[in-house]
Design a protein around this nucleic acid. Structure first.
Lengths: 243, 243
DNA sequence: AAGTGGTCTAGACCACATA
DNA sequence: ATGTGGTCTAGACCACTTC
C-alpha cells in the first residue's frame, strides 16, 4: 500500500478494498469476526483514516461487513438471513420470506451443455455441477429448478447440511465471494421434467426464471433455470434508484 | 446550514442533500443545467469540501446528477433513457429495452377503490387519477396495465406528449422526485377486462405485476396493477449486493 | 492556463457502547 | 474511562477538460 503502488493506477482505497476482500474470501477474516478498528487499519496500511473509511464504506454497502457505532466492525455471515435475503425473492402474501422446504432431486457432475457453457462463460468441454431442486410452500411444490455451477471454480462436492444455503456455503468453502445477479422472468410452457414434480400438466403456462449469478469479480458462478407455479406466493422485485 | 442547525440532529451533509434535492424538485435546478462547482457550493453553504462531496455522492448514486471530471456536475433528465431505464424492466431476447408502443385506453379521475387507498396510503374518500394503458411489442399487445396516482399529489391532468414517460413528466411538473419501487410478480387468471386487449382468453394463465412506486421521501405516488403475456420478451430483475 | 471533479491527508470533535 | 464508528474540517495534489 505504498505510494509507489499508485503507479498501477488504481486508487489506494480501491487497493485496500481489494486487500480486505481477499482476507474475507480466504477465510482469514471469518464470519462474525471483529475487524480491526479504522484507526488500527489506518496504522497498519499507513493510510489516512479517510481513505480507510472509503474502503470500508464499499464493504458495508455490499453487505460484507456490519459497522456498529461504539461497538466495532464485524464480518457478515454469507449464510445469514440478511445476506441470503437478497437472492430469495419469493414472499408469501404477508410479505415474509416463504418457508424454506427444499428437496434435492438430483446432484451430478457432468459435461456442460451448450446453454450452460454460454451462460457460465466456460470453455468447450468444461464440466458443471448440476443440481435439481424442488421447493415447497406449506407442503405444495411451487418451484422446480435446475442449478449449474462451474465445476472448476466450485469443486466442493460434499453434502451441505442446509441445501437452502447451498450456493453460499459452496462459495465460501471455495473462497469465492458472491456478487450481483440478473434473473429473467417470462411465461413458458411447463416442460415434461418439471410437470410431475410441480403437480401440473406438461405444456401448462408457468413462470420461467432464468438467470446468472456472478462472483464479486464479475465471473459467472451459478446458472439457474427454474419453473414456478405461484400460489399464495409472489416474486418480489425491488427497484432502487441506486444500482 | 449554520453550525447551530446541528441541533436538529441531522448531519450537515444530510441537510445539504435535502436542500439540493429541493432545488431539483422545484425546478430551480432544471435538467441539463450545470450545478455550481464543489468549491462554490462549499463557499455558498460554508461547509468543508468533504461535506459537500458527501452530499453530492448521494445525489450521484441516486442518479439525480451526473459528475464528469474536468467538466462539471449536471442535473440529469428524469425522462432521459438512463433514468427511465430502471423502471422499464421489459427486455427483448437480445437484452435491449423493448420498443415503446403505448396506447392509452382510458384516463379518468375518480374516487379511490379500497385497493388503491390501501396501496397509495391515502385517506378515505380521496381521489385518484386512473389510467389504463396497453403496450405492444412489434405490434402484438403484451401488457395491460392499470395505473393509479393520488390526485392530491399529482394533479396535473393535461395530456403528455409521450405517455411512456407519463409518471416522470407528471412528477416533474408537480415537483415530486421519484424514488424506489417494489413490484410483485405472480401467475394469475387473466381478468375479463384484460382478455380482449391482450388477445387472450379470460381465465388464461398470465403474469400479474403489482407494485407501488414511492417518491424520494417514501410517499406512494403510483400503484400499478398489470397483466402480461410475455412472448419474445422477459422481465429483467437486477439483484445487487447494494440495496 | 484555468477550472473541474477525484484522491488523499491529518487531524478534531461527537455519539454511542462497554466495562 | 476507554474505544469504537460517524461527522466535519481545511487544506494538498492529481487527472481531466476546455479555452
Amino acid at each position: 500500500m505504498e505510494h509507489t503502488s499508485r503507479l498501477v493506477h488504481s486508487p489506494l482505497f480501491e487497493q485496500l478494498r481489494h486487500s480486505l476482500l481477499e482476507k474475507i474470501a480466504s477465510g482469514e477474516w471469518a464470519p462474525g469476526m471483529q475487524v480491526p478498528s479504522e484507526s488500527e487499519l489506518s496504522r497498519e496500511y499507513r493510510l489516512s483514516p479517510g481513505t480507510v473509511r472509503k474502503a470500508l464504506d464499499f464493504l458495508e454497502d455490499a453487505k460484507f461487513i456490519l459497522r456498529q457505532q461504539g461497538r466495532g466492525t464485524f464480518i457478515m455471515d454469507p449464510e445469514g438471513r440478511e445476506t441470503i435475503r437478497r437472492f430469495e425473492r419469493f414472499r408469501s402474501e404477508d410479505g415474509a420470506l416463504v418457508g424454506q422446504t427444499l428437496e434435492v432431486l438430483s446432484h451430478v457432475e457432468d459435461e456442460a451443455t451448450d446453454a450452460e457453457r454460454a451462460n457460465l462463460q466456460i470453455a468447450d468441454g468444461s464440466c458443471v455441477r448440476r443440481i435439481v431442486r424442488l421447493r415447497r410452500f406449506k407442503g405444495a411444490p411451487f418451484l422446480y429448478e435446475h442449478i449449474a455451477l462451474p465445476a472448476a471454480m466450485l469443486p466442493t462436492a460434499r453434502d451441505v447440511d442446509n441445501p437452502e444455503f447451498w450456493i453460499a456455503t459452496t462459495a465460501r468453502n471455495c473462497g469465492v465471494l458472491l456478487g450481483d445477479a440478473e434473473e429473467r422472468l417470462s411465461l413458458a410452457a411447463c416442460p415434461e421434467a418439471a410437470a410431475a414434480p410441480l403437480q401440473c400438466e406438461k405444456g401448462e403456462t408457468v413462470m420461467r426464471i432464468r438467470g446468472v449469478m456472478q462472483s464479486i469479480d464479475g465471473v459467472p458462478v451459478r446458472w439457474r433455470d427454474a419453473y414456478c407455479v405461484t400460489q399464495d406466493i409472489y416474486y418480489s422485485v425491488p427497484l432502487a434508484r441506486r444500482v
